[in-house]
Design a protein around this nucleic acid. Structure first.
Lengths: 101, 101
DNA sequence: TTTCTTATGTAGGATATCCTATAGGTGAGA
DNA sequence: TCTCACCTATAGGATATCCTACATAAGAAA
């Protein structure tokens, strides 16, 4: 994923954004990448998105079920509570930036 | 700064948050660290905040003026336009997370 | 069955964030 | 002047993100 923001690449948001997207709708990897592209302007590469999904799966936050050649990921119970926690932290940290529209 | 969020450490937001804070009010390093602590719950250490300030200065986005023993940082002209750009990117990327309150 | 396309996966490395630990500088007050 | 508190600063390294490049798998279509 290219550096879209000159000042800061806003790393460390990918896993959070994936979790949040999955809390709205179960999706497969490519679909997630496209949703992220809509928001960030750059599409995470395969080598970015799949390792991230693997990590989330290893942590028990998401699980995948095969559907033909694609794998649809959804939040686990732990994933659902984690996304709540993480979102609360995110909002607390950055809310005033967004509401200053 | 400790990992406050289990899922993701939300790295890469520090420089942006500094720029944004300075767009509201000129501040010195310690003050910035305290403002960030209010939002994130953890205070960036000296070894985090000063290298970040140095980098922003090297990039011509902020400048410091000595005032006794403290150095008050403020945005340069470039810094002001950069914070606008970066904020637009941030809002585009994450707005729907916050408005889903 | 062969080819094309799409989705998934991994190895290896570049880069950036952020930390611990340490040290220097400056003003305040005894 | 001497100490104390606070702010600033840097070296060095741990860690995590994200990439490029390559490889695998599986359905679609000729």
């Amino acid at each position: 994923m290219k550096k879209t923001c000159g000042t800061c690449d806003m790393r460390g948001m990918l896993s959070f954004q994936i979790l949040w997207l999955l809390s709205k709708k179960s999706m497969h990897g490519e679909e997630l990448a496209e949703e992220i592209e809509k928001r960030r302007g750059a599409k995470p590469k395969a080598g970015t998105i799949y390792p991230a999904l693997k990590e989330l799966k290893n942590n028990g936050l998401i699980e995948g079920r095969k559907d033909g050649k694609i794998i649809i990921y959804e939040l686990t119970k732990d994933g659902k509570s984690e996304v709540k926690r993480a979102k609360a932290y995110f909002v607390r940290s950055f809310k005033d930036i967004i509401i200053s529209e």
